[in-house]
Every structure is written in C-alpha cells, then in structure tokens.
Computed example of a mutant assay.
Amino acid sequence: MFEFAVRGNSVGVATGGVIPDAASATEAPVVLLVHGAGMNRTVWQLQTRWLAHHGYTPLAIDLPGHGDSDGEPLGSVAEMAGWLGDAVTVVCEQFSCKEVRLVGHSMGSLICTEAAAADQDSIARLVLMGTAAAMPVHPALLGAAEKNELLAPELMTAWGHGNRAHVATNPTPGLWMVGGGVALLQRADDGVIHADLSACAAYEAGDAAARVTCPVTVIVGSEDKMTPPRAAAPLIADFENVDVVHLAGAGHMMMNEDPAAVRAALAAALT
C-alpha cells in the first residue's frame, strides 16, 4: 500500500491497483489526479488502473477533508493550490523525480492551473477537464449545500451528467451512473460541499493561465451544463501552449460518462 502525508496529515490516494515505488517512477512518469467539489479520488477509478498499466504512476488524491485525507477542507482555490504545491514537493522527494503531471477535474482543474502557474519547474504537463475561467454556483445549489440537504448532491449530479447518462447508458454494465454520483457526494462530511462550492464561486482566474508554461490539454464535454465549452474559451485563450479535445455527448462527469475517450485523450496529452 502506498501512503504519503502533506503538512503532517495523511493523504488518501488511489494508485490503480499497482503499488508504486521510486524505481518504477523513473520510467513511469508520476501523474497526480485532483477531483472536483465534494468528491474524492474514486472519480478517477476508470482511469487510474489504465494509467498504472500503460507506463505511468497514477496518484489520484483526496484533498484535505475529503475521502480518506485528514484535515479540514480548505477555504479557497488559492489555499488548495498551495496545498497541492506542497503535495507535489512531497511526491517528488518520495519518488526522487524532478517533475509530475497534473490532471484536474472541475474545481480540481482550477487548483491544478493555479499550482502550475506557481511552479513552472515541477509541473511537466497539465490536463484540465470540466474547466472554466469562472465557476459561478446557482444560489439554490449553494443554499442546499449550506444546509447539508440531499438536494445539493441531487442537483450536482443531475446537472453534471449529459443526456445519455440520464437514460441508463453506462459504460460499466449493471451500475446506475446518476445514482452513483449522488451516493458519492453523500459521502462528503457536512460542510464539505458548501466549502468547495463557495471556493469555486469566489474564484477569479486573473492571469493564472498566462503564467502556465507547460503544455496544456483541455478536455470539454459538448453537453457539460456546469462548465459549458464556451465558459472555458477565455481560459483556453490565455494558455501559451494548449490543445483542446471535444467529447461529443459527454457532460461534466466525462470520466465516468465516456471513460474510453478520456483515456485516449490522457494517452495523447501525457506523452
């Protein structure tokens, strides 16, 4: 089992079923995957195993206060990016590597962008999914999250999936994608979803994208209602070196809705 700690607190991590070590990481680049608001490392379960068996060392991590990570949820994207920067330092030391690749979804994409802007030496590549220059939050959703009501996970899941996910289409037979999304968000401790959504609502990108020097890939879903493709356009325009991958028919939760297409995009982006 692989474990590491950041700022004295244990970090929940998934490695795709392969226990990594410093020797293997010299030939299998380290990829840190960062989840979105109210979620945890399990959102990457259809990508981490593939990465682990195709030449990479995946570390899907839980942010503080999420999943199996200790500590309290951090209050802003800037604070989370600072924590991620510390995590990158710890991982580089533990694996004796000079750089890592960052993959972020939704709120995680903002965190990864800020971390890459702040550290131009240790971040080799950046992959963003469900991203935008700003992430305003509907007042009804924010209010439900503040009260820890079931309505918050229900709204996030309903808006977070494209049409196909709502009519029982699932790449993993026998599982209910929308119901699974609600169940995942229900696992968050009280206050976590509200803290995350508040951080997203308050976020201002500024010149972060312009300060990123590594290659960037932005993956957008054509049916993403939470961060529609047009919302990502200003951010994309500010990156110096960027490719854009469009996934037809995918919504915000593209990692689960179209895992094969996401894996293909990762294979091209992380090389």
Rank of each mutant, 00 (worst) to 15 (best):
D189K: 15
T89H: 10
R187H: 09
G104N: 04
E72T: 13
T217H: 02
G249D: 06
D224A: 05
M129A: 12
A250D: 02
A60S: 13
A78P: 00
A165Q: 06
L51E: 02
G174A: 07
G180W: 13
A124H: 12
M39A: 15
A140Y: 13
F95R: 04
T42S: 12
N148A: 13
H35E: 09
M135Y: 08
V127Q: 05
M253I: 02
F95P: 03
A261D: 08
T227L: 02
K147P: 04
A23T: 13
V244R: 03
H105F: 14
G82K: 00
D258N: 05
G108H: 05
T113G: 09
A144W: 12
V262D: 11
R49D: 14
G251P: 12
H105V: 09
A168S: 14
L155N: 03
G71D: 12
M156S: 08
R41T: 03
N40R: 07
V242L: 06
D243S: 15
L126N: 03
L141N: 05
A116M: 10
Y203L: 01
P173Q: 05
A28W: 08
W176P: 00
H138Y: 09
V242E: 11
A205G: 00
V100F: 11
S122H: 15
V178Q: 11
A22K: 04
E149N: 12
D86V: 08
A117P: 10
L185P: 13
P229I: 01
V13P: 05
P229G: 06
H246W: 04
I193R: 01
L197R: 01
M255F: 07
D21R: 03
D21F: 10
P171D: 11
G180Y: 12
P215Q: 01
V137D: 10
L266S: 04
L142Y: 01
P58I: 10
H161N: 15
T131F: 03
W44F: 15
L46E: 08
G36E: 06
G162I: 14
A202V: 03
Q186L: 09
G55Q: 03
A265P: 14
G162N: 09
G179C: 10
D119A: 07
A145S: 11
V103K: 06
V100W: 09
L74K: 08
S96C: 09
C214I: 14
P234W: 09
L197G: 06
E223W: 02
N148V: 10
G75S: 11
T48L: 03
S76T: 15
V218Q: 00
A132R: 03
A87H: 01
H53E: 14
C112V: 01
G85V: 00
A118K: 08
V216M: 08
